[in-house]
Nucleic acid binder design. Structure first.
Lengths: 247, 247
DNA sequence: CGAGGTCTTGAAGACGATCAACAAACGTGG
DNA sequence: CCACGTTTGTTGATCGTCTTCAAGACCTCG
C-alpha cells in the first residue's frame, strides 16, 4: 500500500543525525531525494524477512518495529526495537542477506532508500556516509547494552532499563510529552525483548507499578519517578552517544 | 612495549575482508601503510578503557581480547570476543567516546590505525571504507546472535553455540588445525560471556565432555563430534556473513 | 617448592518458567 | 450500539534451572 509523501519522510532521521553532528543543507537534500516510496505496514507484518536480499533499506517514518530471530523450537528473541527515524535494515546494504526479520509492532509508515543511492553517497558524500555508518554503530551500542541486561541484570531492572532507554530515544524525535509516551508493545512482545516469560513480565511490571515507578494503560506509559527508575535500572545514557560533535 | 613489525600486521585483517569481498592491491597497500605501531598487551590489561577517546583504532594481530562492561555491583558482562584480524574499537572512530572497555584475555599483539587515516580513506577509497563498515556490521550481527543465546537458549546450548562460532571464526584466519584450536579463556571468562555463574559453566562443560562433544585441556579445545555439537547448539553460520560478493 | 589462580564438588535456595484458568479489553461485524 | 470472538492481561500453584556459598583439589609458573 502506498501513501502520499506529504510530510518530510526524513524529518526524524535528520533529527537523530543532528543530535550527534551537524548535517549540512546539501546532505539533508541528498537524503531527501534518496528516501522515497512511503508505504504502510500493518502491525504484525514483516518489513523485511529473514533470508531476504533487499535492494533498498527501510526507514521508519512512524510506528514501532522490532528485529527478531526465531529459534527452531519456536521461541522468539527480539534484538532491537526501532522507532521513527531508524533505518531498520541499513546493514543489509553491505550484509546483503538478512539473517533475521524485522516486523511492525504497531502500524508503521515506512520509506526506503535504494542501495545504489547509498553506494553513490559513499563516493560523493563521505561525511554523510560516516553519519549513516554512525547510526549502525549506535545500533551496535544498544545491542551491547541489551547483552549486559540479558546477561547480568535482574528481570525488574532489565524492564526498568528498557523503559529508560525507550523514553530517552523517543525524546530525541519528539515522542515524549509531559504525561509520558506511547509504547504500543504487548507484554508478550516485552517478554521476547527481555528474554523472560510473559507471565513473569506481568509480575515484574506490577512490581514497578506498585513501587510507583510506572503506569501503563493501553499504549500509554508514564514514569512518575524518573530518578528512582534510573537508579533501579542503573541506567546511564552514555551508550546512546547523544553528544553533538564532528564525526 | 614495542615490537618489530616483522610479519605483515594486516595479514589476518585482509584474510577476513577477502572472505567477504575482494580487496584490490591498492586497498591492501592503503591498509598496510595505515596500520602501524605494533605493541604487546599483557593478559588482563586493557587495550582500551571505558571512557577513553582514542585517536586511533586497535587491530588484533595475535591473541584474544574481549569487550566488557562492568555493572555498579561489580559483575561483568563480556559482549564480544575478538580474534586476530579484528578491529576491536573501529567504532571509536565515529562513536568517539568508549562506553565499554576492551581487555586482553591472552597476551595480545596489537597494531593501530590513526582515525585521520580512516577519515582520509572515507574520502579517497569508498569501497575500502565500505569493507571496514562491513566489519562493524558483522560485529553487530554477532551481538544479535549472542542476544538470542542469552535470551532464549539453555546454558548448555549457549556454550555449544559459542564453541561452534569460535571454531568457524578462528578457521577464517587459520587458527584451526586437525586437532582443534587454542582458546585461552578461563571458565570465569566464559561465565561472563554466557551470562552464567562460573560454577554452572563448569557443570555444563562437564556435560559436554560427558557427551563426547568437547575436550578442553588448558587452552586446547577439540570438538570430536561437530555435527552433534552443531545440532545441540542449533548453530547456523549465516550470521557470520562468510559469502564473497561485491559490497 | 610454594602460592595464587583455576577447577571441581556438594548443598541449599532464589528466580523465573510452565501450566492452567479466568478476566478484561479490543475490534469487528451485525 | 451491542454481541461476540479473539487477543491481551492477571493470578495461583508447582517445578526446574541456575545461583550462591563454601570447601577442597589441582595446576602452573615463578
Amino acid at each position: 500500500m502506498r501513501v502520499d509523501a506529504t510530510a518530510a519522510l526524513t524529518a526524524s532521521l535528520i533529527q537523530r543525525l543532528e543530535a550527534r553532528d551537524s548535517v549540512s543543507a546539501e546532505e539533508a537534500a541528498v537524503l531527501e531525494v534518496s528516501v522515497q516510496d512511503a508505504r504502510i505496514v500493518q502491525a504484525g507484518d514483516d518489513l523485511v524477512s529473514d533470508g531476504d536480499r533487499p535492494s533498498n533499506s527501510s526507514l521508519i517514518v512512524s510506528g514501532v518495529a522490532a528485529r527478531y530471530s526465531l529459534l527452531p523450537g519456536g521461541s522468539r528473541q527480539i534484538t532491537a526495537l526501532h522507532l521513527p527515524g531508524d533505518f531498520v535494515d541499513l546493514h543489509s546494504f553491505l550484509l546483503k542477506t538478512m539473517d533475521h526479520g524485522v516486523l511492525a509492532i504497531s502500524r508503521c509508515r515506512v520509506a526506503t532508500m535504494p542501495h545504489e543511492r547509498l553506494t553513490e553517497i559513499s563516493r560523493t558524500h563521505p561525511h554523510l556516509m560516516r553519519l549513516l555508518w554512525l547510526m549502525t554503530l549506535i545500533d551496535g551500542s544498544l545491542h551491547r547494552e541489551w547483552l549486559v541486561g540479558l546477561g547480568r541484570r535482574s528481570a525488574i531492572s532489565r524492564l526498568a532499563h528498557l523503559l529508560c532507554e525507550t523514553r530517552v530515544r523517543l525524546d530525541c524525535v519528539g515522542g515524549v510529552d509531559a504525561d509520558g509516551f506511547d509504547l504500543p508493545v504487548t507484554q508478550a512482545d516485552l517478554s521476547d525483548i527481555l528474554g523472560l516469560s510473559s507471565v513473569h513480565v506481568n509480575r515484574v511490571l506490577q512490581e514497578l507499578r506498585g513501587a510507583g515507578l510506572v503506569t501503563w494503560r493501553g499504549a500509554r506509559v508514564t514514569l512518575p519517578d524518573w530518578p528512582r527508575l534510573v537508579a533501579l535500572a542503573e541506567f546511564d545514557d552514555r551508550y546512546l552517544h547523544l553528544a553533538r560533535e564532528p564525526r
